[in-house]
Design a protein around this nucleic acid. Structure first.
Lengths: 161, 161
DNA sequence: CATGAAACGATCTAGAG
DNA sequence: CTCTAGATCGTTTCATG
């Protein structure tokens, strides 16, 4: 699970473009095809690389509006959370869902075409599960969105400079 | 830019797994290789498919902690926003950044290894740009995270059932 | 004009040294 | 790690309806 400098370079490239041929990746990180391919293979087995996916344009598929939904609840037991999580899993509009510390209990990011669609989503949600306090904040603009995680913190085992 | 039922099926598959061979996608949507390949090609040209990327495991690359940072500001002009956006662009820890409506002006999602690293990020941020009111909320658990957007709202041009 | 079969070339994957 | 070779897949061409 410890990654060296070359592994991080490979990951950086694959986070930007997963279609890049192994030979080209190898060339960019100073490796020939086979060892580069072996490293990628290993990182996939270890689960460092989870999957390769297509990223779509939200506006072009008509989900240009992002809403952040804060939820407070009276229930705080494990079984209720599992039910809540299972419910949210079925809502494809919810793309992110976090259990929070502080004054709000849960935060979710919801993507919809417009306000009306958000209202419809909201009604379907509260019909499925009882939520004591729900607050919605609309995003006016998505200034930055990336699937690429920072690699600066990844643990290094060996002593490369 | 209008997508039919087959296009949406293709996109659904590619959002889950971008390594799936065109022939197999075609088989699943009831098309042979060439027309399926043409559809994918077209959606890439139109920008519906933005890119294909590798999705990494946050915990395995040591950024398991998510922090939502709310920002209020006194400045509300366009040039200040551009400077702010450019600053954020350089912070790889900030993976999402939104201009909001309501009582908070901006919201960002930040990924870091731990609280200490967040503090270091915070200090670097406020050293770069003056922010009047910053509030941080820590996520205890990421219950759901997906890069797959809902396709139910995509506009349909033709009259397939 | 869209489809599909087939052929080509690039890439992946695996083995041996 | 390099070299090699076979399997697989992306991409183009062409015939068909």
């Amino acid at each position: 699970m410890a990654l060296d400098k070359i592994d991080r370079k490979i990951l950086a490239l694959l986070q930007r473009d997963a279609t890049m041929p192994v030979a080209e990746i190898g060339r960019k990180v100073g490796l020939s095809t086979t060892p580069c391919w072996r490293r990628i293979q290993k990182m996939e087995e270890e689960g460092v690389i989870r999957r390769r996916v297509a990223v779509l344009d939200p506006v072009k598929i008509n989900v240009g509006v992002t809403v952040f939904v804060s939820v407070k609840t009276a229930e705080h037991n494990e079984s209720w959370l599992r039910k809540f999580a299972a419910t949210i899993e079925d809502f494809s509009e919810v793309v992110e869902f976090y259990r929070m510390s502080g004054d709000i209990d849960y935060l979710m990011r919801v993507v919809v075409p417009d306000i009306a669609a958000y209202d419809a989503f909201y009604k379907r949600l509260i019909a499925k599960i009882a939520l004591s306090d729900v607050s919605s904040s609309f995003a006016m603009e998505q200034i930055k969105y990336t699937t690429a995680l920072p690699l600066d913190f990844a643990l290094v085992n060996d002593d490369d400079k």
